[in-house]
Simulated assay, not measured.
Amino acid sequence: MKAIWNDTVIAKSDDTRIVENNHYFPMKDIEEAYFTGSDHSTRCAWKGKASYFHIEVDGKLNRNAAWYYPQTSYAARPIENYVAFCNGVKVTE
């Protein structure tokens, strides 16, 4: 699977995990140069607290376009520190 934003592959993996129709990519498979931390967070009732990344490619910033769970609940442990995408990031094979 690939995650693409602004015509650039920002993550690529053969080991994504699908939860609630979102592909979660292992942290090791994202292109770190495009990601910066965000202060934004949300909470999922069954997964836990999500942290976010901004994505920047060729000077274009996509705020809070990626999220991950640094510490999940027991039920969501398979996606702990895996990254999912929103805000126009295309995930495709």
Rank of each mutant, 00 (worst) to 15 (best):
G48A: 07
M1A: 14
E32I: 13
V83R: 10
G59W: 08
N87G: 02
P78K: 04
E80T: 09
V83A: 05
N62R: 09
S13Y: 10
Y74P: 10
K60R: 08
I18D: 13
W46N: 02
E31H: 12
M1V: 15
G48N: 11
M27S: 13
K28Q: 14
D39S: 09
S51T: 12
A50W: 06
I30S: 05
A84N: 05
N21S: 15
T8P: 04
K49N: 10
I55L: 09
D15A: 15
N87V: 04
C86S: 12
S13D: 07
P26M: 11
A75K: 13
D39L: 02
P26G: 15
N81E: 10
S38Q: 07
V19W: 11
T16V: 15
S38R: 10
S38G: 04
G59L: 10
A75C: 06
D29R: 12
W67S: 07
H54G: 03
A66M: 02
E32M: 15
R63P: 06
T42V: 13
D39A: 07
S73A: 05
E56T: 08
T36Q: 10
F35C: 11
R17S: 14
V83W: 01
T16R: 10
I55F: 00
W46S: 08
S38T: 05
P78A: 00
F53R: 03
H54R: 01
I30C: 03
F35R: 10
K2P: 01
P70S: 05
L61V: 11
K12Y: 12
A45I: 13
T36K: 04
V19F: 07
M27H: 09
A50E: 00
F53P: 06
M27T: 12
W67M: 06
P78S: 02
D7Q: 11
F25D: 05
E31M: 07
